[in-house]
Design a protein around this nucleic acid. Structure first.
Lengths: 237, 237
DNA sequence: GTTAGTATACTAGTATACAAATAGGAGCGG
DNA sequence: CCGCTCCTATTTGTATACTAGTATACTAAC
């Protein structure tokens, strides 16, 4: 049904199944709109329904599944409205965080940023490294927030970005991530040289770029058409 | 143990217990640091542990309870770091939303805002109306976000504001909310007259004002001292 | 008196049995 | 052939029994 990785040490069954199921949804292995029953999941993970139910409750909070009582559970289709709101929140908060970083930023975190980008560059030209790159990308932005002591703010963004990130995966499967890496380098430059005036432009670009072509994925003749919830109007960027 | 209100129609046991337990925590009826066992809660609500467990998992996500396996469940103490992050996120996002509102805002929502403020004014001078006022206050800000189609952004703020809001309740139990009502009126004025340049000041004031005196609550000789988690450093405003 | 070991009671984690509600199809009457 | 009714299979919702880890109070040895 989906990739079941090994249970990590110190992980209880709930945390374990949360990790595995969420990864499957975010990697589009469990497809938007697909039916998933509690029993199916429990059997796939060799567990009882109890921990699975608690995981589904959590995923429902993140808009990743929808539960209809006595009927079934579905993977949420990608909703344009949630993409738009995530975009708004990310741009607004990340702009402010980057400006703060221009005033002061811990040296140690700056080193972490550089190390992270170095790892990103190692992936250039390789195939099938999308998931690895996405993890590094998320780490990169988390480091910036953490350098400003705003870890929970990043968590809030992350929870709201589930639909944005799934769409981004679709749109990047056919594109390279060179551009994103260059932008990350510019982030570091801006922080190091205190160029707060450059923040506005680069942030907007960095966040909107990956989803600019999303109309192609959304429209009638796209193979991914059914992944989207068409009951919501498509916002314009 | 705590106030158990009646079950609303169409509410399943999980939604019901979530509402009741969260209200009790947010109203400080269940005190920060207090132990609450699943069995206790189940008995108080006349339910089994299953729905209670799912509620506790949800509340843990919102940083409202902490679960230590095989030991117990506690109401989270108020953490300065979470207050600071909530303040940052609220100021940043709400500033941007109010600026957007200056460009355009639905007439119908503007009427809702005015109706809401009218209700707030009816509470002036009355005692014990803190909870009612807080509900109206939350509604007021929600209406603004909803007028910009950013309902989920508000939800994200709200989830992050659980510690901010509990502290605010403490600090307002001895103060009036006249000032807040006046600020709400100014919000409406700003939107109606497109005075984007006034946004910055009023937002900062509105969000920081209620927690300015919080050092009094936090320090050694305060009766509420134990409500706070002193392992975190206190940020400065 | 102090300390190490042990029994016990309490906790959350998990599995399972049962209830309630819905959807879909078989069967029947028109 | 169409439409209605009822039954059944399947789903999530709930309750309960069991497992395993933890803290604590008690006991016995030093």
């Amino acid at each position: 049904m989906f990739t079941v990785t090994a249970k990590l040490p110190g992980e209880n069954n709930r945390d374990y199944s949360y990790r595995v199921i969420k990864e499957a949804i975010m990697a589009l292995e469990l497809k938007p709109g697909q039916t998933i029953s509690e029993i199916e999941l429990a059997e796939a993970l060799q567990l009882s329904r109890t921990p699975i139910r608690e995981v589904l409750a959590k995923l429902r909070e993140e808009h990743l599944v929808e539960v209809i009582p006595q009927v079934g559970t579905y993977v949420s289709k990608i909703k344009p409205k949630l993409i738009e709101e995530a975009t708004f929140v990310r741009i607004t908060l990340e702009k402010e965080i980057l400006k703060l970083s221009c005033e002061s930023f811990p040296k140690e975190k700056l080193l972490q940023l550089k190390g992270n980008v170095a790892q990103q560059e190692l992936l250039i030209g390789q195939q099938g490294m999308e998931r690895k790159f996405h993890q590094l990308d998320k780490d990169f932005h988390y480091i910036i927030f953490s350098g400003n002591n705003k870890e929970n703010a990043w968590d809030a963004i992350n929870r709201l970005s589930t639909h944005y990130n799934r769409m981004r995966l679709l749109s990047e499967m056919e594109h390279s991530f060179n551009e994103a890496i260059n932008q990350h380098k510019m982030f570091i430059e801006i922080i190091e040289n205190h160029q707060a005036e450059k923040v506005e432009g680069i942030i907007r670009q960095h966040i909107i770029e990956p989803i600019k072509l999303w109309e192609d994925l959304y429209k009638e003749n796209s193979p991914y058409k059914d992944f989207f919830d068409h009951t919501y109007k498509m916002p314009v960027f």
